[in-house]
Design a protein around this nucleic acid. Structure first.
Lengths: 248, 248
DNA sequence: CGACAAGGCTTACGTCGTAAGGCTGTCGAG
DNA sequence: CTCGACAGCCTTACGACGTAAGCCTTGTCG
């Protein structure tokens, strides 16, 4: 995302939109493809069909192009997935409720950040596990924040609000662990609901015979209190952070 | 693990060990292979070389066998990975510090369970993400517990200790979220340490120029306080659970 | 001794990521 | 107006993958 627009050695772009307005409609609506379009298509595909189905060939087909053409914009599949993660995480930048630094205290700041990521996760249930499982580039870029931008915002934000260096670091670790656990499980249960409906309720019930407690509590365990529990756990976390802040 | 040893329609086993003691040493030490050996080899391979390198062909080669022979013991690659997860999680059964039900209160019980899983995770840093990311078979089998056995133990244990049904369910969700977040990040940071050493420190430092806070706090962020933070967060979680218990 | 079955091997198909190089349409320089 | 450069896409090709189908070997027991 840093060196894409600056490769502007060819200032004369084909203005497809203008051409269309002029009623020219070039054959097969030739918008020249770009790294952005490729990554976008990958995100859309994953959202709709899940990770495992995504191949360079299929992605090319979707874009009306052979697989090898994608390699002009992306070094390979792995890097494409990295780009997908980056794009998804950076969606938060467009979220008006997420702010770059504290305006009404650090607790409000972190609340907004946490809910911002949660919205991202819920918007991309199929892609979010990528954010969690892709190896981080550096030990301080912990999922699900993962981008220097947000990590920097976090550190500066809490620093400005009176957290010492060690307190900021510890708060950062606690914050990320909390988010990762909650959100991963939330999107997982989301996928499970829409997932395999092939097993009839009867089968489950009978195979659960040796586990009476699971069987009995099944309705309670299936219930979705994610939103509430997220809220409460976050609240608790923020209280603990207040202690961290004052202790160090 | 349930139907393996019961397929004992052929009571006359080739006793490879006895043969070896007799100095016979059958050609290429033919131990007949088995689902257990296959799964074990997969676990060992993942521990040593990581998931992405594991293919049916390579696994076969390790066992001195063609890839297709594995299909006699495992339906396919996906199911093999499921079996790997199951085996890893069930390692806890052999952990003497983990107990099946509370003996000195539910807090002690959960402490043991939590540390048991943590030990498993740290023993298999490369395989643990599988435990987390593999789609669960049912909404109540949340990672990283994942097996009916442990879920049942959890539910019964807390039920016996005076938790109501809803309280048990909520406690279960909180417990799993906590474990997942903490352990995933802990094994990830473990992998990152032994991981890519190809980037020199200089490069990182210079590329961090626009992010002064990250740069300044890098030493603090790299420090590993996992054990302590696990302990403290767990302690806090147990306190919250006590509230859950009394509230409902 | 002959039949059988378990366990491993061979072959084959379709899909994958991607290296190497070929074609074509567009555009600035002469 | 022509021509060469070059960006953008395509073709071909290779090796690895998961796995379906069927063959061959070897040890067991009637």
């Amino acid at each position: 995302m840093s060196d894409e627009p600056r490769a502007g050695s060819t200032p004369a772009h084909v203005d497809g939109d203008a051409a269309i307005i002029r009623g020219e409609e070039p054959p097969s609506a030739r918008v020249p493809l770009s790294r952005e379009r490729v990554v976008d298509a990958a995100v859309v595909f994953i959202d709709e069909h899940g990770l495992p189905g995504l191949s360079m060939r299929r992605l090319g087909a979707i874009l009306g192009v052979e697989a090898m053409s994608l390699y002009r914009y992306v070094p390979g599949r792995e890097q494409l997935l990295d780009a997908v993660v980056e794009r998804i995480v950076d969606e938060m930048a467009a979220d008006p409720d997420v702010i770059d630094r504290p305006e009404h205290g650090w607790q409000d700041f972190l609340q907004r950040l946490a809910h911002g990521i949660r919205r991202v996760a819920l918007r991309h249930p199929n892609a979010f596990p990528l954010v969690a499982s892709r190896p981080a580039e550096a030990p301080w870029l912990r999922p699900p924040l993962r981008s220097l931008r947000w990590v920097e915002a976090f550190l500066v934000g809490l620093g400005d609000e009176g957290f010492g260096d060690d307190a900021v670091a510890e708060a950062y670790r606690a914050f990320t662990s909390f988010l990762l656990g909650h959100l991963l499980l939330e999107v997982a249960s989301l996928g499970a609901d829409l997932g395999p409906l092939d097993v009839v309720e009867e089968d489950v019930d009978s195979s659960l015979a040796p586990y009476p407690a699971v069987r009995r509590l099944k309705p309670a365990l299936r219930q979705d209190h994610s939103a509430m529990e997220f809220e409460e756990s976050l609240e608790n976390l923020l209280q603990r952070m207040a202690l961290i802040k004052d202790e160090r």
